[in-house]
């Protein structure tokens, strides 16, 4: 049945080469943990992506209940966690995933660093990777404010002071992030929400695309 459906589409649109180009590649021996167990270090990039997919999915579902408004944000998070079926699981996925993704990203970076995989011709992908790291930090920073509890509020207060310590334009950066010159409040929350849910994910997708295209073109680096 499925095969017939696939054949019907393939006959007309020739999808075969598309997915072959994406999925049908040999895994070199030195990257395959079945041959050398130590090759598990090559999994961290994929695991980072896996957790990122979980973040995107669980985040999309959280926005079904979450409201970025100082009166209601905390209550909506409380409601979705305590009253909605599986709310604790979905919020838990996003909450813990946010930390796990950083851990995976870090392990992946360590592997690339200690194997020297960033060397010519792969310098550009190291740069893309560092940008991805900053985007992840940004997502973690902006997401942390969203529950609008005390921890969120004061963590953001501190984060904004750090941003304000930038030479020359520090105060302007702080105001731009907080949405107000002195208050961390209504406008801070809406800004952080917009950045967390629209702006940074958009940048994330572009960078991930570049990261994967570069890997596909250059191949995985050779054995040590």
């Amino acid at each position: 049945m499925l095969q017939k459906l696939y054949d019907w589409v393939d006959e007309r649109v020739d999808v075969n080469p598309i997915w072959r180009d994406i999925a049908d590649h040999e895994v070199p021996e030195h990257v395959n943990p079945a041959y050398h167990f130590s090759a598990f270090v090559y999994c961290f990039g994929g695991l980072t992506f896996f957790v990122t997919v979980i973040q995107i999915l669980s985040g999309m579902f959280l926005t079904m209940y979450y409201v970025p408004d100082i009166e209601n944000a905390w209550n909506s998070v409380y409601y979705l966690q305590m009253e909605v079926a599986h709310g604790q699981i979905v919020r838990g996925m996003h909450h813990w995933g946010a930390s796990v993704v950083i851990v995976m990203l870090f392990l992946h970076t360590l592997r690339v660093f200690f194997q020297g995989a960033y060397k010519k011709p792969r310098e550009l992908n190291w740069v893309v990777g560092v940008l991805l790291f900053f985007v992840m930090l940004g997502l973690g920073f902006t997401g942390y404010l969203l529950p609008w509890d005390n921890k969120a509020y004061f963590a953001t207060q501190v984060g904004l002071e750090i941003a304000a310590a930038t030479p020359v334009i520090g105060d302007q950066i702080r105001t731009l992030l907080a949405g107000d010159q002195s208050i961390v409040g209504a406008q801070t929350l809406t800004r952080f929400f917009a950045i967390h849910v629209f702006f940074l994910p958009a940048v994330l997708f572009v960078l991930l695309g570049a990261h994967f295209i570069l890997i596909r073109r250059q191949g995985i680096s050779g054995p040590l």
Binding site: L57, V84, A85, H86, I89, M93
Partner: peptide, 15 residues
């Protein structure tokens, strides 16, 4: 296992 809790979460108002 990943998607099931999210789907149940989304359709909760019906239940």
């Amino acid at each position: 296992g990943m998607v099931a809790p999210m789907v149940r979460f989304a359709i909760d108002p019906v239940f």
